[in-house]
């Protein structure tokens, strides 16, 4: 049973990893700093480690999807991220792809499930 749970946990993690960038980009409508993203994603039911999110934000910036600048706030510097023009365009496309994918997969998942395990009689 433990093994099965582990397999499920691993597969769920794969699913989440695939959708994470979409979630992050969608949260960046207005400029945000890293930790506020961690908090809002967690509130939205998508817990994410800062150790995953911060490097991800850097990578997205390197790809040109995000722009960042340091701002001094409450006497300490914070890096604010926002969508670049490219990022906004990519987000639009990605959102459309996601919605198409959701429709397709929902049709598959909602169809009469074929979940009868094959058992030796």
């Amino acid at each position: 049973m433990d093994d099965r749970e582990r397999i499920v946990a691993g597969l769920v993690q794969e699913l989440r990893r695939g959708t994470l960038i979409l979630c992050v980009l969608r949260q960046l409508g207005d400029n945000r700093y890293g930790y506020s993203l961690v908090q809002s994603l967690e509130e939205a039911g998508i817990p994410i480690d800062p150790g995953t999110l911060y490097p991800l934000l850097r990578r997205l910036e390197k790809q040109g999807l995000l722009e960042s600048r340091w701002e001094l706030e409450e006497a300490r510097p914070r890096r604010y991220y926002g969508l670049s023009e490219t990022g906004a365009w990519v987000l639009d496309r990605l959102t459309a792809e996601w919605q198409a994918m959701v429709r397709t997969i929902r049709a598959l998942v909602d169809a009469e499930p074929d979940t009868q395990p094959k058992k030796e009689e």
Binding site: Y33, G34, Y35, P50, Y54, R76, P77, R78
Partner: peptide, 11 residues
């Protein structure tokens, strides 16, 4: 380094 310190401060 700057980023990590900022993160820790926020947390």
């Amino acid at each position: 380094e700057k980023e990590l310190r900022s993160l820790i401060e926020d947390m």
